[in-house]
Design a protein around this nucleic acid. Structure first.
Lengths: 203, 203
DNA sequence: GCTGCGGCCTAACGATCGTTAGGTTGGGAG
DNA sequence: CTCCCAACCTAACGATCGTTAGGCCGCAGC
């Protein structure tokens, strides 16, 4: 059986509602109603509505970061030197986190702006550091002429917003399961940088 | 001199605030404060807060549709048959509308979910029809083997969310003006479908 | 059998929400 | 000079907001 604490249930329900109606579009009483309890009863488990948002955003940020860490480390040593391989691993990791829990990912991607000033600043920094990983791989690939010459900042933003856009349309179904989706998104992302044949015909 | 009605001013201010804090995160009194008037005074110009959102969303939807119409018509006749050219025109038109008024575009892209049920349904339909244009061009290109074999639904969603993602990060500056940005985004989008060399080496 | 406690309750607080009602002002048209 | 009308005002409405205070209940451990 699955051990699910009440706090986790609350965060699940909150993620779902924040995903559907946004943070300011969701009231504490809305969350409570979905759990069949009174609004005030939530405060036995949660310090504030902000605290709830922070738990979801911070936890999801950590999962993105951990997945990116794993993607850059676990590859075979020689693959770590090929920009296309490194980028493919980053894209696959990102898509994996998104499809694994669309609602939490959506809250992280869209609702972090509703955080308090200091927390919003922290998340902004962590997001920038995360995006920097993409910029560096792209810049490496451009430098090695295995990618087409593109502005790494614009290209990284292009790729990441495309991946994040998944939360706006993807729903798990049989026609396109998460594995096939990840394959398609890796293919599109590598091709966007004109990777693939370039690596084989240098000069 | 520019003829600016009070109603337009209000919509400008509302677009800016909806863009920054979201529809439910913005109060009528917030909008009024930015105009240096009282909240209740807004109702001399606006039927309701929802009406304001609808004006912005509906108007921006119309601008996207008109730009896509123009992009598919005004090209030279022979270019209209080349999927890569048609897609490039669609991408350039879309990026143009976004960069021309980031705030309104952002409200259209993100806040249409806050519309009332019937209006949300209408916009959902128009968005789907708009996305369908991308799907058809992609399917044509795949069928003609000028694009790599990809799922047109996933590819169209990938492209459109990448373009829409502009509102999350792009700010007009000198380093990357709208024209250069559009060029970069057209390049990335065409390459994502592996267009370009394929058209030259058929079979 | 008592204690502790997680989990939930009702009642209420001050603030803010979208919106309505009714009145005042200033400048342009007849 | 008079009239009109867009633009804005103050005051207030009922509803809902996030949150606090204080109490009740059932169950596990000593």
């Amino acid at each position: 059986m699955v051990e699910t604490t009440r706090r986790q249930e609350i965060e699940d329900v909150a993620s779902s509602l924040f995903h559907e109606h946004g943070y300011s579009g969701t009231s504490v009483r809305d969350i409570a109603r979905a759990l069949d309890i009174q609004g005030a009863s939530l405060y036995a488990h949660v310090a504030s509505k902000q605290d709830l948002l922070w738990s979801i955003v911070d936890g999801t940020a950590a999962r993105f970061e951990a997945a990116a860490d794993a993607a850059t480390i676990n590859a075979e040593p020689e693959a770590a030197e090929v920009p296309a391989e490194r980028l493919a691993a980053l894209v696959r990791a990102h898509v994996g986190i998104v499809t694994d829990d669309i609602e939490r990912a959506s809250v992280f991607i869209h609702e972090w702006r509703s955080l308090s000033t200091e927390r919003r600043a922290e998340i902004a920094g962590r997001r920038d550091a995360y995006e920097q990983r993409f910029r560096e791989v792209i810049a490496d690939g451009v430098g090695a002429a295995s990618f087409a010459p593109v502005d790494p900042v614009a290209a990284a933003a292009y790729l990441l917003t495309a991946l994040n856009g998944l939360v706006a349309w993807y729903r798990p179904d049989r026609r396109l399961d998460p594995a096939a989706l990840a394959d398609a998104y890796v293919q599109l992302s590598l091709q966007a940088l004109d990777a693939g044949m370039r690596a084989e015909v240098p000069g």
